[in-house]
Design a protein around this nucleic acid. Structure first.
Lengths: 192, 192
DNA sequence: TGTTTTTCTTAATGTACCATAAGTATTTTT
DNA sequence: AAAAATACTTATGGTACATTAAGAAAAACA
């Protein structure tokens, strides 16, 4: 099993010796997801932290008009979770599924909690990760309230240049908060 | 100086002995803010973590049409920060000011970093805090994309029953993402 | 206590984006 | 390679919200 991407992601923030690395990887579960396969469905409890090593997942809600709204894309190297459900054990509001064939590692919450006690450095790791995510969520929120649809599209292209090439336009539209029809029109009308 | 609210907030998540508590409080700076006084202005670097002990602060952006959009309210017991600026040292996009006369404690970032090394339990504290904030931001984002203006208003009332009584309607409008005129109309037209 | 500032309301007009529909192109599946 | 599913485009009409303006009420200030 190839843990290299995951381990290098961890050691960007904390040092691990051989023994610590082995203990960490012993907690990991590997899973392959087919396109459209669910990792989490609304109403279930999100009991694990998931790290993507290949492919691309997404989290999204479905509103009462059955319209999907994408909250996050998770290509290789990203984590994905319904944090409220994970922390409190409440039913998830988010769905998480694979946009293409993907590979993930996940850690069950009780194992992660043990890990914090056994190797407290992981508290630091998660603290740093949490702060970075929070920064991203704050700025996404700012963009959503302060920018027009076209500006949000440009922001997306700038922030995720690799995703814009691989994702269907429909998914991008859902992320920036417009209908696919409107995005199509916008891209084919706007001259500058 | 009364540290009790702040310390009880900390000890909800980690235990501190006398010495640890003393060291922690030795890092705190107390400040009183007048109504409308700024704690952070767009373009400055957010170099401290701020905890509110009385009154109420808010963070907000100003868009290119000079409209204010409130990102967060911070009444007593809440933290407030421009996380991207704090983590990376980049210029803040957020403004933070006081909606009424308020009291805060703040910790400078270098002191907080030292605290993590000297009392690693604080890594755990911040990790938990970060996860809770992330949960809140995820769910706020969901509400923003999946709910109508009226539903967002109701959600706000449910989530912050105390704030709804004290805040000017104008500030609530800015938080839920509508103009004050529209909120007024909505509240005086909607029968149910 | 009067004056200024801020907040709230009402109403007319305007617009960014949505809903629906229907056709074409592309990808996936068999 | 055919069939089916999905993705993208174009067009028409509709709506949830914004903008502007202006007056009334309430709060802050001097």
């Amino acid at each position: 099993m190839d843990y290299s991407l995951f381990l290098s992601h961890i050691t960007r923030h904390i040092d691990l010796n051989k023994e610590e690395g082995d203990y960490f990887t012993s907690l990991l579960h590997y899973k392959k997801l087919k396109k459209k396969q669910f990792l989490l469905e609304e109403g279930e409890v999100n009991t694990k932290s998931t790290f993507v090593t290949s492919g691309c997942l997404r989290s999204y809600v479905i509103d009462k008009n059955t319209v999907e709204h994408v909250l996050q894309f998770a290509p290789a190297g990203w984590w994905i979770v319904d944090m409220r459900s994970y922390v409190t054990g409440s039913p998830a509001r988010l769905n998480i599924d694979a946009l293409e064939e993907s590979e993930i590692f996940y850690i069950n919450k009780p194992d992660f909690e043990d890990l914090y006690l056994r190797i407290p450095k992981f508290e630091r790791f998660s603290r740093i990760l949490g702060q970075n995510s929070l920064a991203a969520y704050q700025y996404r929120q700012i963009d959503n309230v302060a920018l027009s649809a076209m500006e949000r599209y440009r922001q997306f292209c700038q922030l995720y240049p690799s995703l814009i090439k691989t994702l269907p336009q429909k998914q991008v539209a859902s992320y920036i908060g417009v209908t696919p029809e409107f995005l199509s029109k916008m891209l084919n009308t706007t001259l500058i």
